[in-house]
Design a binder for these strands. Structure first.
Lengths: 205, 205
DNA sequence: AACTTACTGAAACATGCATTCCATTTAGAC
DNA sequence: GTCTAAATGGAATGCATGTTTCAGTAAGTT
């Protein structure tokens, strides 16, 4: 969708591309300070060019982040159509954690700046997770005593938290997923057709 | 440690107090920008006084945050000695979420600045949670197939995430706790020898 | 090749912030 | 009441950062 505008000179297109790539690279670098200067240096252009490329730093970050998020959305949809919903959910969350952990610097920007396009992608991502949740509810793989949207919010927020944890290791991520998925399973107290199990009942909140 | 220094003039002591209180108030205000100017205005003193009070903004925030966290640590310990560990854990997490949600602005500061004293309190807080987890493991209330420290990390990170969630409502918090506690319970598939507390003492870590 | 104009980038500018200076004020001792 | 040193606060400073300017450069057209 991007390289369209015919009123753009060739070198401008090239520099926009470089700027975007440099920005993405910095967003993935945990130690980098994402300033216009840094982006310009990495892209091999002047600071003014970076600013002009998308109409300001904020718009640039917005484009970079949403471009980073879009493939994730597609991936989520693909997974859901390829395997059982709860398996798709688990697989996707593992990948999501890896992605977010790798793009540590991105989170700070998302929280500081106002990024409309990125928010759209984030919403799509949540909707993709919601789709997984909904289907998993229908197959009885996860509990239905909680609202589906609440379940989704809970999943995405916690996943986000684990990913941004300083101590993030694949071990922690795996254990997190274990606890989360177990907690999401229908519990003996609320799921009629459960296996034999007699733990102390849980109380409704 | 606190109001001690006898070489401090009376008005200086008073202004330090005001500065601290103003800082805490701003940290609890979600819309406030926590700048030296803002603190000074709120405290009714000059910016220079604010900066001098603790030797710089960072040290001031450090003092304010750690002062805010310390009572929480005490509360966690009290709860643990007053009730069953898993109940103490649940109760405390609910309060912790409420606290962190109310001190939204605090989180940004903690992540941006280097706050040694606050980190000490945060460590104590995690140790208090770890104590709850350890005791709950011994009574068979929560699963033991995960490392106790990992379990604690998971709990505090997720709790932190839920608290900082924009959409934080008491409903979300309650549902989060439900899923978390259910996920932490010994699972039918992996915790057969945990029914009675007769298992051989295998608390290695 | 000449020409037009979009594009570029170093430097100037603007902004928001913490910190420091210093003339003035005030607490505390006598 | 007088004196002195500590404390104050408004202004000045320094710094980091995003944005704009403008003289120069090079892409695209003829």
């Amino acid at each position: 969708m991007s390289t369209a505008n015919p009123r753009l000179r060739a070198d401008a297109v090239r520099n926009r591309q470089r700027t975007l790539e440099a920005t993405r690279a910095l967003l993935a670098d945990p130690d980098a300070t994402v300033t216009v200067e840094a982006i310009a240096t990495k892209a091999g252009v002047g600071a003014a060019t970076v600013v002009r490329a998308f109409g300001g730093k904020e718009a640039l970050i917005d484009a970079a982040v949403s471009g980073l998020l879009a493939p994730l959305v597609q991936r989520a949809r693909d997974l859901l159509s390829d395997m059982a919903p709860e398996e798709a959910l688990r697989t996707f969350l593992l990948e999501l954690i890896a992605f977010q952990a790798a793009h540590h610097a991105m989170n700070a920007q998302v929280e500081t700046l106002d990024l409309p396009a990125a928010e759209v992608e984030q919403t799509r991502l949540q909707q993709a997770i919601l789709a997984m949740v909904s289907q998993a509810r229908e197959t009885g793989a996860i509990r239905t005593d909680l609202d589906a949207t609440v379940t989704m919010t809970l999943i995405s927020e916690c996943t986000y938290a684990i990913a941004r944890s300083r101590a993030t290791s694949s071990e922690l991520a795996a254990n997190y997923l274990t606890v989360l998925m177990d907690g999401l399973r229908p519990q003996t107290s609320d799921a009629p057709p459960a296996k034999a199990s007699s733990s102390p009942g849980s109380r409704s909140s």
